[in-house]
């Protein structure tokens, strides 16, 4: 018996491609069959297996970055229909229903250099973590005994900041963070607060605040507050910025009267 022929339902995926950092960007369009519960990563996997554009041209498979596939590593962050998000947690059917269009548009993040296609280099974020000394200063050579205790309230607040996965959504949506300025952005500011609030991490607080009061520091924030709205981990980024602002105000007054 022959199964009744039903034409496969498809949708279009428009991808902004780029062969390298200084190469020009160009668009390609692919037709992808609709499958239930299919996320953007599986759409990209289908395209990698069938790299033929809608005009019938055989092309190089699209390059993208991904890791955990459960929205905790940040590697697959890209711009889906103009909005930055993790592509692993973006379901194609839901996205099509949300925009009401017959196609999905994928572009790389615009605030970081493109390695290839949808794969960007987010090194600036990790450099910023080094700048703000995003660590607890213990070298692990000898036993320091039990660390200071934290209240449940402190734990609860710091847990929120600990969720940051360095994905870059906050920076992509930030009007003050651009490729050609040195603004440090919400991610690093929130991490500075995270470590300033840690009982042992506090030892580097003054150094962190010195870094954050320089060019590109917290004062460059324009309070557009996009960061907190696009953060997939719902980190209270604007509160972190305000709290570091308070620490900086106190720090500046203290330095005025007591620094050598």
């Amino acid at each position: 018996m022959i199964a009744p022929h039903t034409p496969e339902k498809t949708f279009l995926v428009r991808i902004q491609r780029q062969d390298g950092e200084s190469q020009p960007a160009y668009w390609q369009e692919f037709e992808v069959p609709v499958k239930p519960a299919q996320n953007i990563i599986s759409v990209l996997q289908y395209i990698a297996a069938n790299p033929v554009t809608t005009s019938g041209e055989q092309v190089e498979p699209v390059v993208w970055d991904s890791g955990c596939l459960e929205e905790v590593c940040g590697a697959c962050t890209m711009v889906v229909d103009g909005q930055v998000r993790q592509s692993c947690s973006c379901l194609a059917n839901e996205q099509l229903a949300k925009t009401g269009k017959d196609h999905i548009e994928l572009t790389p993040m615009t605030k970081f250099p493109v390695v290839r296609d949808l794969f960007v280099d987010r090194q600036r974020m990790f450099d910023n973590l080094k700048k703000i000394k995003g660590w607890v200063p213990i070298d692990g050579t000898h036993d320091l005994g039990p660390g200071p205790t934290e209240t449940p309230e402190q734990q609860e607040e710091r847990y929120a900041y600990s969720r940051c996965m360095t994905c870059g959504c906050c920076l992509e949506a930030c009007p003050q963070f651009t490729k050609d300025n040195e603004f440090i952005g919400a991610q690093a500011i929130a991490q500075a607060l995270y470590f300033n609030q840690h009982e042992t991490g506090k030892k580097l607080k003054s150094e962190r605040l010195d870094e954050l009061s320089g060019p590109g520091g917290v004062a460059d924030c324009g309070n557009a507050q996009n960061c907190v709205k696009v953060c997939p981990k719902e980190i209270p980024l604007t509160q972190a910025i305000a709290k570091v602002g308070r620490q900086l105000t106190v720090h500046a007054v203290k330095s005025f009267f007591s620094s050598k």
């Binding site: 009007p175 300025n181 996009n226």
Partner: peptide, 24 residues
């Protein structure tokens, strides 16, 4: 000078706060 250190993006992220940033 500060105005031109940023690049508004209200079209993409049309939040009220973002509009407020641009209006400022």
């Amino acid at each position: 000078w500060y105005t031109f250190t940023g690049k508004h993006n209200v079209k993409r992220y049309s939040y009220a706060d973002n509009l407020r940033y641009m209006l400022q």
